[in-house]
């Protein structure tokens, strides 16, 4: 029972990080129909800011703020420099553009910083743990869960009650008509990228706080997972992205915890098999996006 509760907390913490990343992908996709594979590099950039801040003794709270600010600004720049000119191009063109942006940034990280993994100095309290009702819980897990809840709450409030959030949802449903209302295409797209950068920054802080290191390809794996989560949840659907992120987190952690030892090496294929099975049952994802042409089951 003990072990089960521990693993469930781990699953929520990991799933939450996937959810934040998947949400970042979904916000951009829902408006621009772009799958931004350079999302991982936003994470990596925030990771390097944490590394440099650690080296220079910047207080942790400030370095977290700087890291998140960096990925947010980088996301907006990415849109301005790379994606604006291909905005009306085909999905394939935009996808290739995002791969190019990702590659350029990875090479820059390798050549300007280091191709090897760098340690990130973290405050001690993150590696400590507390005992709650007889359960030992790592502080970093608590931080991850709290940060996820706060971010999801913030995003829900923003999308439901803020004029600009509602405008983003309107643009996601019908971009041309949203423009007729006076909703500026550039503003709403830049806003979507800023949000995705913000989410990637928070996810990066959580990711780094579990591993205490950063390398040029750090963002690749989690964003690939987040992409799977976004599809599992229903591509373009924000609630779906959250659901998919948590679902994937639970699948991964429970398989790692409860699969017999001799089957552990098949963990990933089994996990992806479950995802495929879920998609066979629900081809449009767990919570499909109403705006997209639905796949007929």
């Amino acid at each position: 029972m003990d072990f089960f509760v521990q693993q469930t907390l781990n699953a929520i913490a990991l799933g939450g990080t996937y959810a934040l990343l998947a949400l970042g992908l979904a916000v951009v996709f829902s408006i621009m129909k772009l799958i931004n594979f350079a999302h991982g590099e936003l994470m990596t950039s925030a990771g390097y800011v944490l590394m440099y801040c650690g080296l220079h003794g910047v207080p942790f709270a400030l370095s977290v703020a700087l890291a998140i600010l960096t990925s947010t600004v980088l996301a907006v720049l990415m849109e301005r420099v790379a994606f604006r000119s291909v905005r009306n191009a085909s999905g394939a063109t935009m996808l290739i553009t995002s791969f190019a942006v990702a590659t350029v940034l990875q090479v820059l990280f390798q050549n300007l910083i280091s191709s090897r993994s760098q340690p990130v100095l973290l405050p001690n309290f993150l590696s400590e743990s507390v005992t709650v009702a007889g359960f030992v819980i790592g502080n970093n897990k608590i931080v991850a869960i709290v940060a996820t809840v706060v971010m999801l709450g913030f995003l829900d409030w923003f999308m439901k009650y803020q004029k600009h959030g509602i405008a983003m949802r309107a643009a996601a449903e019908d971009f041309a008509v949203a423009r007729l209302m006076g909703i500026r295409a550039n503003t709403v797209i830049a806003g979507a990228f800023a949000l995705s950068g913000l989410l990637a920054g928070v996810a990066a802080v959580l990711w780094v706080s579990q591993r205490a290191s950063v390398d040029p390809l750090m963002g690749f794996t989690p964003v690939l997972k987040a992409f799977i989560a976004a599809i599992l949840g229903g591509l373009g659907s924000l609630r779906g992205a959250v659901a998919g992120g948590f679902m994937l987190g639970f699948i991964e952690i429970y398989l790692a915890a409860f699969l017999p030892p001799d089957m552990q090496e098949f963990r990933d294929p089994i996990g992806l098999g479950i995802v495929v099975l879920l998609l066979l049952l629900r081809p449009n994802g767990l919570i499909p996006s109403p705006g997209l042409g639905a796949v007929k089951a």
């Binding site: 509602i166 309107a170 209302m181």
Partner: peptide, 22 residues
Amino acid sequence: PEGRRIFPTLSVADNLRMGAYS
């Protein structure tokens, strides 16, 4: 526009609110 093209997953009030966006 033709075909109405309201924002279906937005509430009626939010649709109207978007109309006054500018």
